[in-house]
């Protein structure tokens, strides 16, 4: 979680310096969810995420250097400078991308789950999306097919309360989104996302259900992002009181308190923080010094090479 937090704080700084372009959506405040999911999944499993994708990529094991270099648009980035912030990929770790059309990647996740079922593998797909996805057609069609075919997929709605700048009560008549699961013939679950242990236990239930043939689950995780929707968003649609209240449940503070309560010395945790600081500093230095994205790959990667595969 500390790697994600420092990675994104540093990304924000470098965005302000003009080192990073385009859109940059930060995951700060939601880190417990990604860490819990990464902890639960096996190597053979698949993950899809929205454009708010740095956290899960790092949790899954992508290096901070590969992530930062991608933000800097460099050849050493995880997508070699072709994806940017919204399109991290790490196929070797089963991370099949950050996707930037709201609701557009849910059916893809049903597709990798379809493949698992088709081939008889026991791999599971986890698909993240936000509360802003629940009204678009892509959500409905993917949920319909996953439910109909009992696909091994877990749909994780990270409800951070705002679809860009619009609060949930203005986009949904439901307070409890998880009841939608019933309409698609799948199990629903709903819980707070600030305690990594709680998230891990509940995600694990859903993943095990999928892995053992019990079909898909729709999970609503209640969370909160501490930053705006993207770097250009000052988040004027919410009060500073609300933000400060939510920060009381910062998942990193929660886990730190738990650990010290268990007798872990503050100094041990501080040492970890220092290590992370160094790791992120190194990532920024690496990204800055890396060669730019390669022009020669631009035309040659439009189509995949033909021949046996």
């Amino acid at each position: 979680m500390m790697v994600m937090r420092r990675f994104e704080e540093e990304a924000a700084r470098n965005y302000a310096k003009g080192k990073i372009g385009g859109f940059l959506h930060l995951y700060i405040g939601q880190e417990a969810i990604a860490v819990a999911v990464a902890e639960v999944l096996e190597e053979r499993d698949y993950i899809f995420q929205t454009y708010r994708d740095h956290g899960i990529a790092l949790a899954r094991g992508m290096s901070a250097t590969a992530g930062m270099a991608e933000l800097f648009g460099k050849d050493t980035g995880c997508s070699r400078g072709f994806g940017g912030s919204m399109h991290f990929f790490d196929v070797e770790r089963g991370f099949l991308g950050g996707w930037a059309i709201v609701g557009g990647h849910l059916a893809l996740a049903a597709g990798t789950a379809f493949k698992s079922k088709y081939t008889g593998e026991d791999s599971v797909t986890v698909c993240f999306f936000g509360d802003g996805s629940i009204n678009i057609g892509g959500f409905h069609e993917a949920m319909s097919l996953a439910g109909l075919w009992k696909l091994p997929v877990v749909f994780v709605c990270e409800n951070n309360q705002y679809a860009m700048g619009t609060p949930l009560e203005r986009t949904s008549p439901l307070k409890d989104l998880s009841i939608k699961a019933k309409g698609y013939g799948m199990v629903g679950d709903r819980f707070d996302g600030h305690d990594v242990e709680v998230v891990q236990a509940r995600i694990n239930e859903a993943v095990e259900r999928a892995r053992t043939g019990g079909g898909p689950t729709f999970i609503e995780v209640l969370t909160y992002r501490f930053r705006g929707h993207s770097m250009s968003d000052p988040a004027k649609y919410r009060t500073s009181t609300e933000l400060e209240q939510r920060k009381q449940q910062d998942p990193i503070a929660v886990v730190r308190e738990k650990l010290t309560g268990l007798g872990v010395q503050e100094s041990v945790l501080d040492d970890i923080d220092l290590e992370v600081d160094e790791e992120i500093d190194e990532a920024v230095r690496f990204a800055d010094e890396s060669p730019p994205a390669r022009e020669d790959l631009m035309m040659s990667t439009v189509m995949a090479p033909e021949g046996e595969s």
């Binding site: 059916a107 893809l108 049903a110 990798t112 379809f114 493949k115 081939t119 993917a142 097919l145």
Partner: peptide, 26 residues
Amino acid sequence: ERRVVDTPIAEAGFAGVGIGAAMAGL
């Protein structure tokens, strides 16, 4: 039925399922 799959009327859904399945090797 495993390889000849009837779908509901949901083109965006099953087109996407196909793309996801192709990404994973089918």
